[in-house]
Amino acid sequence: MSAHRNLPPLPALRIFEAASRRQSFLLAARELNLTPGAVSKQIRQLEEHLGLPLFERLHREVRLTAAGAIYARAIGQLFEDLRAATAEVMVSPAADKLVVWCAPWFLKAWLLPRLERFRALRPGLQMDLRTGESSEAIDPKADIAIRLGLGTWARMRSEFLIPQEIAAVCTPAYLRREGLSQPFAFGDFVVLDSANTPHHLELWKQAAGMAGVEPRERIVFQSNETAFAAALTDHGLALVNPYFVEAELANGRLVCPWPARTRTDRSYWLTWRDRFNLPPAASAFRRWILAEFRRE
């Protein structure tokens, strides 16, 4: 019996993947440079091959059936694996190149200050550092990634790096300017908060025993990074991962008015696709970063 006997036509699968992802025959046709009629015909042939409908045809739209949704998830993952495998084999084995995706706060506060140590181990390595706001949607071309989350990304291997902790910091200059001294009162402080993590303030207040106490003022920034930048320029109290500001705390540029720290449910993880071997440069990066954390 042929191993291909039960497989549906591959062109139809490509069209189904686009149509299910777009939820539209018209948009799939535009993406694939086909006519809507050609898309509809291929989907119909696929349904006949499977013996069940994949889409409900409504007046001006199409909607996946229950079976279609199950099939779409599986086919979508197969095409994602195919794209990743294609990108992997198209890279010349002789090319000493590494594409790293990194969560922005980790990139700025931890990786960049230490990056020369890794580069010294791999002279001539061409590095491509990429980042983005969400660890849920990283660049698919990344060989390896440092992500913030629960460590449960589908079809990815994950190695724990550090937890996401929260501490409150400010500059000594801010305390002097506002005339603040121990014992500190939270109600006297301006809090520099982030719209990305609005729940962190309440988490920290609970850990500090100040649930229900409000600051004098709360300024909301678009990201944690901009809130921290404001704290460094003496504008108030920011919530940060203390691991990322160890140097500033050690040299006195920042202080913690209260010793309270707490953890969120998220951590930083080193991740890569579980179906593919790490390229040599990515494997060297993994060994280096794990050794750095053991050393620290």
Score class of each variant (00 low, 15 high):
Phe160Glu: 01
Phe160Asp: 00
Leu161Asp: 00
Leu161Lys: 00
Leu161Trp: 05
Leu161Arg: 03
Ile162Asp: 03
Ile162Cys: 02
Pro163Leu: 03
Pro163Thr: 05
Gln164Arg: 14
Glu165Leu: 15
Glu165Ala: 13
Glu165Thr: 15
Ile166Met: 02
Ala167Ser: 10
Ala167Leu: 08
Ala167Asp: 03
Ala167Tyr: 00
Ala168Val: 07
Ala168Lys: 07
Val169Cys: 00
Cys170Gln: 07
Thr171Ser: 08
Thr171Arg: 11
Thr171Tyr: 12
Pro172Tyr: 05
Pro172Thr: 04
Ala173Ile: 09
Ala173Asp: 14
Tyr174Val: 01
Tyr174Gly: 02
Leu175Ala: 09
Arg176Met: 08
Arg176Asn: 12
Arg177Trp: 10
Arg177Gly: 12
Glu178Asn: 14
Gly179Phe: 06
Gly179His: 07
Gly179Tyr: 12
Gly179Asn: 09
Gly179Ile: 03
Gly179Arg: 13
Gly179Ser: 06
Leu180Arg: 10
Leu180Val: 09
Leu180Asn: 08
Ser181Gly: 08
Gln182Ser: 13
Gln182Asn: 07
Pro183Tyr: 08
Pro183Met: 08
Pro183Glu: 09
Pro183His: 14
Phe184Glu: 00
Phe184Trp: 02
Phe184Gln: 02
Phe184Met: 07
Ala185Tyr: 04
Ala185Glu: 14
Phe186Tyr: 05
Phe186Leu: 06
Phe186Ile: 04
Phe186Asn: 03
Phe186Met: 07
Gly187Asn: 03
Gly187Asp: 01
Gly187Lys: 14
Gly187Arg: 09
Gly187His: 09
Gly187Ile: 04
Asp188Phe: 04
Asp188Val: 06
Asp188Ile: 05
Asp188Tyr: 06
Phe189Trp: 10
Phe189Val: 05
Phe189Met: 02
Val190Cys: 06
Val190Leu: 05
Val190Thr: 12
Val190Arg: 08
Val191Phe: 10
Val191Gln: 01
Leu192Lys: 08
Leu192Thr: 07
Leu192Arg: 07
Leu192Gln: 00
Asp193Gln: 14
Asp193Gly: 15
Asp193Val: 04
Asp193Cys: 04
Asp193Tyr: 10
Ser194Ile: 02
Ala195Lys: 13
Ala195Pro: 03
Ala195His: 13
Thr197Trp: 12
Pro198Ala: 07
Pro198Tyr: 11
His199Phe: 13
His199Cys: 13
His199Ala: 13
His199Lys: 15
His200Gly: 09
Leu203Ser: 11
Lys205Leu: 08
Gln206Val: 15
Gln206Trp: 05
Gln206Tyr: 10
Gln206Glu: 13
Ala207Gln: 00
Ala207Phe: 06
Ala207Arg: 13
Ala208Val: 06
Ala208Tyr: 02
Ala208Ser: 06
Gly209Thr: 09
Gly209Met: 10
Ala211Leu: 13
Ala211Arg: 13
Gly212Phe: 11
Gly212His: 15
Val213Pro: 10
Val213Gln: 14
Val213Tyr: 14
Glu214Ser: 13
Glu214Ile: 14
Glu214Cys: 07
Pro215Met: 05
Pro215Arg: 06
Arg216Asp: 10
Glu217Trp: 11
Glu217Ala: 11
Arg218Ser: 02
Ile219Ala: 08
Ile219Arg: 15
Val220Trp: 15
Phe221Met: 03
